[in-house]
Design a protein around this nucleic acid. Structure first.
Lengths: 207, 207
DNA sequence: GTCTATATGTTGATAGAC
DNA sequence: GTCTATCAACATATAGAC
């Protein structure tokens, strides 16, 4: 790996943590340099400006969702519906791990950057879409356990909504209970959907 | 009304709009002075610093929720369940009115301010709690139309979650559809709860 | 590619006359 | 209470030697 690639990687890693902990605007280039032990020249040799660091960070989230988020969350969980709640359990764990200061990095950036460049906004949107898309695949795998008229895309987005809203309220109140109650409500939602599908089974081919 | 009170009111109003449009960190004192046509001396005569302007803004949201948000949303809507969706419809209207750039001012500030002063955090929490509390009152008014074991506090928070998540995704994708699908899912949730309560009516006193 | 020094602008906040 | 002028700190980004 070339030295520049290493430098780039160190910057992206440090910026990822700093943007998550302090936000984009409150993170200075000096913060990134301090954490990476690099000099301004090195950073500006790799990135034209601060926004390009943000873009690289969002690309890293996009490219790492499978390996860094879904894979560890779904370790040993095969049932597609339970995978949804296993992912939410992982967020719960992160909330506890950070003393209820955890914020979803994508969600926080999405709300912090009010007049974001189209490239940045697209990357935020792609990150959301991939997250919800992963849930949607679980819902597809659940097949006819869900009612036939279930909008699986909408339900995937709904799970993302519950995560974001739960994380937001838990952080603001410094209390996981707000996240837990949201997940409980979502569990009730799924229970009712599954019960409805069980009461009115799908027409089987040949009926 | 004393001149200072007028000055204070103008600053709070301007800051409210600016924090909503640009965020707290990206709004400078100069922005506020420019919009209010005031000078630095006047602002710092009323407020010790920028954070105190934020506190005043959050207090204004807290004190205005009934008059500025709930009252207009519930004009002519009496059914407690429909009031919930009328409030969400008002958010939909704001999303459209802003070309899908609308962000909930409280939610945005809650995620932007990573290391907020306890006073600020409490005010954010109170704003959330009052919003969810207003929904909870609707749910209480719905009485036995909802299942007896329904956690009405949790469900009120859940409605807030759906609003925040829907607004967040709609803004990021610049597409109301994301908000609409979230509200639809919540409608399904309520329909299932109401149907469940109708199937298993509450034990009536004397049964 | 990396270093140091620095340009250039903006920030929140203050001083002191009126 | 309001005005103007200004401070000190910090921001992003650049220049040019090595």
């Amino acid at each position: 790996m070339s030295p520049a690639a290493d430098t780039r990687g160190r910057i992206v890693m440090a910026a990822m943590e700093l943007f998550w902990a302090k936000g984009f605007n409150s993170t200075s280039i000096a913060d990134i340099l301090s954490r990476t032990q690099l000099n301004a020249g090195s950073l500006y040799h790799v990135f034209p400006g601060k926004q390009d660091v943000l873009i690289a960070v969002l690309e890293a989230y996009r490219d790492g969702i499978e390996e860094n988020l879904l894979k560890p969350a779904w370790e040993g969980v095969d049932d597609p519906i339970e995978r949804i709640f296993a992912l939410l359990a992982r967020y719960r764990w992160m909330i506890l791990e950070t003393d209820c200061t955890y914020g979803c990095p994508i969600g926080s950036l999405a709300l912090e950057l009010h007049e974001a460049d189209p490239v940045v906004r697209d990357l935020l949107a792609v990150n959301f879409a991939n997250w919800a898309g992963a849930i949607e695949q679980c819902l597809a795998a659940a097949g006819d356990r869900l009612p036939a008229d279930t909008d699986r895309r909408a339900l995937g987005e709904f799970v993302l909504t519950v995560m974001e809203g739960g994380v937001m309220q838990a952080r603001t109140h410094r209390d996981v209970g707000y996240f837990d109650r949201g997940v409980d409500a979502l569990r009730t939602h799924f229970d009712m959907l599954l019960a409805r599908a069980a009461r009115r089974p799908e027409p089987v081919q040949g009926d």
